[in-house]
Design a protein around this nucleic acid. Structure first.
Length: 625
RNA sequence: GCGCGUGUAGCUCAGCUGGAUAGAGCGUUGGCUUGCGGAGCCAAAGGUCGUAGGUUCGAAUCCUGCCACGCGUACCA
């Protein structure tokens, strides 16, 4: 964001921004990325596939591409087998492939897997094969789990580009809580997509155009003509806009005035454009403060206004024959209407393009400019049918075509409502409750009180830093812990709840581990690494290590489902395993050096996975709280 | 009306693309702890998975009908 005054300067600045993003995208797509999956997790699956493929290769019915390891499931929690089962392999699907009895096949598979030196125990239980992984396998890969800062990342989607559209606040309005979910979910998904190898372009599709800007500029002329627009501040802008919107409801004269101003703006009136640029600058500064606070960064801020001229051109050149039945081009008026499941006006009877026209132009622009594999839209579920219609038209009109490559996929990523603690819809109209800054302040205040109470020796500044991290983390976790499409309650008490499934609980386990590690000297840490024991000293250590080895699998699932809550669920389970490990596997004050070394390594691996996992959710970590 | 989505323990939610006796947290009840951060750990009670059918070796998960709730539904974004 540089300092520009005129609309031309602004456009020039935006063009630079776009150019930079295109170059970065190109570099990202060409780059070869590394795979940081746990060696243990990978070897277990490869071993099962190799052994079973070899074993069943003589059977004529076998599909050679059958992925045996894909059948692996976690054993039921209460299975009464008497030993710790790490994975269970149901043999129903395999048996169907072979045309044989599942129980017999299970026996055969068990015999086959017993030969492997990766597994400590393999037994059948009817049609299931229960598998226990050897401690040594998990222990071997523990070092990379602890040390690799990129642990968990995979390169499945390297050379693929995804444009992700999220946040998109409305210019000249306060950054409201209604844009919180899209911002949080969009940022987390961007990070998760990057972790599976995508190159991601984060585009903030600002709501910086539309009839409300006519109203805004008319409001200025009506209520505050004595203040030059260039000197107007955000509060005044909001005040006159709200007043205008109110009075407009009962005054046709004001309504007409708003329309007239929008008409002049749409035609490019120089003075009004300059005023518009001023409003945009004010808003961007305010938005940036929120993004800094939330730790969110965008590649581009290409608002709707950028697409106005393009949209007229695009609509005029739409291939009418291909869109017959889907899009109506009126003969008498310039109106263009889409008759999808969700009827959408593209060009009004007065000849103005509305948001649908700009959304189509946006698809066109993104495909032309970035040639991405995907364009993701992180938007409230209530707009699902609207976007399905837009996507359908874009596809039919050929806007998603790429040269010598598959069409760009347009994908809607919807989410549920944000409700207050009583389960009612949060409303921007009801005073301050709608402003994101106020809401974050309220959470931070609560976190500050709590931090102060627990750390009376800390100075105010340290308390503030901790409270800021914890409160932002709590808000994000609250939003991401549940499935996207379900609605989320904004309950400050529950967010900062001690224990439970708040992020505070996870940060607490993190701080307990880091506290131990901080007490150890560098010499202790390094000298201990050389002689690890051959086995774990307890079952819960084994389970923790196994869980840690599955990080990549979880990231892949979260990416495939476009759902950060899968990651949140994993981190919760991990934290639960940590509880017992911390209580029962002591580190400091024990004589067995090898044992201590192994446990320290587990703590380090835990700290690494938790901080990486939280980072994928854009949650800041802190080892004091 | 039509379209999309959601119904799982008292409450808030998971349930890994159809697998064994449906799992967590809060709350309730009981227990542990002279110790690495007790904001902890262990355990118990608590469920005809909205409802009626269907598909198959097997369904909370897939299909159909019905019920309840939420959202969207033409010139606002």
């Amino acid at each position: 964001m540089t300092d520009y005054q005129t609309y031309e300067d602004y456009r020039e600045d935006l063009q630079k921004q776009i150019k930079g993003a295109v170059v970065r995208a190109k570099i990202g797509v060409e780059a070869v990325k590394e795979d940081h999956e746990s060696a243990a997790a990978k070897r277990i699956r490869e071993e099962i596939d190799n052994l079973l493929e070899k074993h069943f290769s003589q059977s004529p019915q076998t599909d050679t591409s059958f992925a045996y390891s894909a059948q692996l499931v976690s054993p039921p929690k209460n299975a009464k087998v008497g030993w710790t089962v790490d994975y269970a392999l149901p043999t129903f699907a395999i048996s169907r492939q072979l045309g044989r009895n599942p129980v017999d096949v299970a026996g055969e598979i068990a015999d086959c897997l017993k030969d492997s030196d990766l597994f400590a125990r393999v037994e059948t239980s009817g049609p299931y094969v229960n598998i226990g992984v050897k401690d040594s396998l998990l222990l071997e890969s523990l070092n990379s789990l602890a040390d690799d800062p990129h642990y968990g990342q995979v390169n499945d989607h390297q050379h693929e580009l995804a444009v992700i559209d999220y946040s998109s606040p409305n210019v000249a309005k306060p950054f409201g809580v209604n844009h919180l979910r899209t911002t949080i979910i969009g940022e987390s998904l961007s990070r998760i997509f990057e972790a599976v190898g995508y190159t991601v372009v984060r585009d903030n599709h600002l709501g910086d155009w539309g009839t409300q800007f006519g109203n805004l500029l008319a409001a200025h002329a009506e209520y505050a003509p004595e203040i030059p627009f260039s000197q107007i501040d955000m509060d005044t802008l909001n005040r006159i806009y709200v007043r205008f919107s109110q009075e407009m409801k009962t005054s046709d004269a004001l309504k007409r005035k708003g329309q007239e101003y929008f008409s002049r703006l749409e035609k490019g009136d120089a003075l009004l454009m300059e005023n518009w640029v001023h409003a945009l600058k004010l808003s961007l500064a305010e938005f940036q403060a929120m993004y800094d606070r939330l730790g969110v960064k965008f590649d581009t801020f290409i608002g709707e206004a950028y697409y106005v001229n393009r949209s007229y051109e695009l609509i005029a050149n739409l291939p009418k024959e291909k869109l017959r039945g889907l899009v109506e081009f009126s003969d008498e008026s310039p109106a263009v209407v889409i008759n999808g499941q969700h009827p959408v006006v593209v060009i009004t009877g007065d000849g103005y393009g509305v948001y649908a026209a700009r959304d189509l132009a946006t698809v066109d622009f993104r495909v032309q400019e970035f040639k991405p594999e995907y364009i993701f839209y992180v938007v409230g579920e209530e707009q699902a049918s609207y976007f399905q219609t837009i996507f359908e038209v874009a596809k039919q009109a050929g806007l998603t075509k790429r040269e010598s490559a598959n069409d760009t996929e347009l994908e809607f990523i919807g989410f549920g409502l944000l409700l207050d603690k009583d389960g009612k819809k949060l409303s921007t109209r009801k005073g301050t409750s709608g402003k994101l800054e106020d809401v974050l302040d309220a959470v931070e205040l609560r976190a500050t009180e709590e931090t102060k109470k627990r750390n009376p020796e800390l100075d105010d500044n340290s308390v503030r830093l901790i409270a800021r991290k914890v409160s932002v983390g709590a808000v994000i976790w609250n939003d991401l812990k549940a499935d996207r499409v379900s609605s989320v309650r904004f309950d400050i008490d529950r967010m900062l709840e001690l224990g439970g499934d708040s992020v505070v609980d996870i940060l607490y386990t993190f701080s307990r581990s880091t506290s131990i590690l901080n007490k150890l000297s560098v010499a202790e840490l390094t000298s201990l690494e050389t002689d690890l024991p051959k086995t774990f000293s307890s079952d819960h250590e084994h389970r923790l290590a196994l869980k840690l080895s599955e990080f990549s699998i979880v990231i892949k699932r979260a990416a495939a489902a476009r759902s950060p809550h899968i990651l949140a669920g994993y981190l919760s389970e991990l934290a639960q395993l940590h509880g017992r490990f911390y209580e029962e596997s002591r580190v400091i004050g024990i004589d067995d050096k090898a044992l201590a070394a192994m446990r320290i390594l587990l703590h380090r691996a835990y700290v690494n996975v938790i901080s990486s996992g939280l980072s994928l959710m854009n949650i800041p970590v802190t080892d004091r709280l």
